[in-house]
Computed example of a mutant assay.
Amino acid sequence: MVNYPKDWGKIKLSELMTPYNGLSGKSGNDFINGNEKYINYLSVFNNTVIGSATEKVNIYHGELQNIVNKGDILFTQSSETAEEVGMASTYLGDEKVYLNSFCFGARKKREFDSLFMVSLLRSKAVREKISKEGQGSTRYNLSPTRLLNIEVTMPKDVDEQKVISKTLLSFDKHIENLTKLIGKKKMIRDGAVEDLISGNSRISTFSGEWINNKMKNIAVINQGLQIPISSRQTYKTKNNYLYITIEFLKENNGQKYYVENPPTNTVCNKDSILMTRTGNTGQVVTGVAGVFHNNFFDIKYDKSKIDKSYLYYLLISKRYNTEIINVAGASTIPDLKHKDFYNISINYPKDIKEQKLIAKILMSMDKDIENLEREKEKYIQLKAGAMDDLLTGKVRLV
């Protein structure tokens, strides 16, 4: 139980703000050549602060649509999961904008700091309250009345709210700057992959020939093992192996499975290169040991002809990844067949030293990106800790 400061107070959101609806009665044609800007659902969901809008919708003369005011609190109203409804943001721009459907806004009845309010509404404790208010089976909906009936505890002094929000905003700014820098460096890395893997840019110390060869001449592939969930283990032992599935590729995937006594040809090590052959075809994994799922190919390459890291970057390059996806087919579930993989022609330097140096350059760029991503994650964790301290009054700034 949180012991809030005595000069903080409990209050229902309905005492602080009045709700209004987003756009209604709009057809697809209204969004084609719109005359007024509107804030879309994803902007509300993804951002704590919205400063502008670019998308447009037709608003007709005499139509009763609500214009968003500066400082209004905006909420997502409908989502596929209860955890995503009621995500809050605030509009701090100066231009006239409207709010999209599947969202609703709330206008101040009493003075409070909008940035503080959004941080409070996105805090873990309040998010737990909000998510419980979502209703539905296949899709969750949140009525403004149910959300604004929630009670929160906050500083009565608006100046203290502003100091807290300013501190949390400094974390957001740093995280945003890191996100932009990471994105920029990834674009540069992707461009370097295309230039170096294609041979359009050569390393000055090399001038040897490049080889065009089919995959069947440099690699052998085999599929992995399909194990029903009921037969998987959820804990690590001395004798079992990590089970590498499609879920393994998802960020922040916390569930791990393990397999005991697998066939040896389905076991991979950290030098192996795995590639998804069906579903989300063409995703490449390396640097992991375990047992790979039937949705993967294990690519056993000829180390005398091609360097592992060079092959990895070749497979993730836009040129070859696009070809892999195309040959897998455009059906509901794309499926890369053995013969189609073997028939893919690739270009690579004959001198394996050039391959290694190309890979080294690209690995250095990836290392730089990884360091920035670690720094970003560190600040995300620091902000989470600061939110817990500042939004409960454990730490006071005034």
Rank of each mutant, 00 (worst) to 15 (best):
L169M: 15
P155K: 10
D172I: 05
F171G: 02
K166W: 12
K156D: 01
E194K: 00
I150Y: 02
V152A: 01
S165F: 04
V152P: 03
L196I: 00
G183I: 07
S170E: 12
R189D: 09
L168C: 02
E176Y: 08
L169C: 12
F171L: 05
R189Y: 07
L181W: 06
K184D: 13
K162R: 12
P155G: 04
K162P: 06
G183H: 05
K173I: 07
A192W: 10
K180F: 09
K162V: 07
I182V: 11
E176Q: 12
I188K: 14
E194F: 02
D190G: 05
V158L: 03
D157G: 10
S170H: 10
D195G: 04
G191C: 06
D190K: 15
L181F: 12
E194M: 01
K162Q: 08
I182G: 05
H174S: 12
S165E: 04
I188L: 14
L196Y: 04
V152K: 11
T179C: 02
D195S: 05
E176V: 01
L168Q: 02
L169E: 14
F171R: 06
T153R: 00
L168H: 03
I150Q: 00
T179W: 06
E194D: 04
N177I: 11
K186E: 14
K162C: 11
K184G: 11
E160L: 07
G191W: 04
R189F: 13
L181A: 15
K173Q: 13
I164W: 06
H174K: 14
K162G: 11
P155N: 08
V163E: 08
G191H: 13
V152C: 00
D157A: 04
A192Y: 15
F171S: 01
G191L: 06
T179V: 08
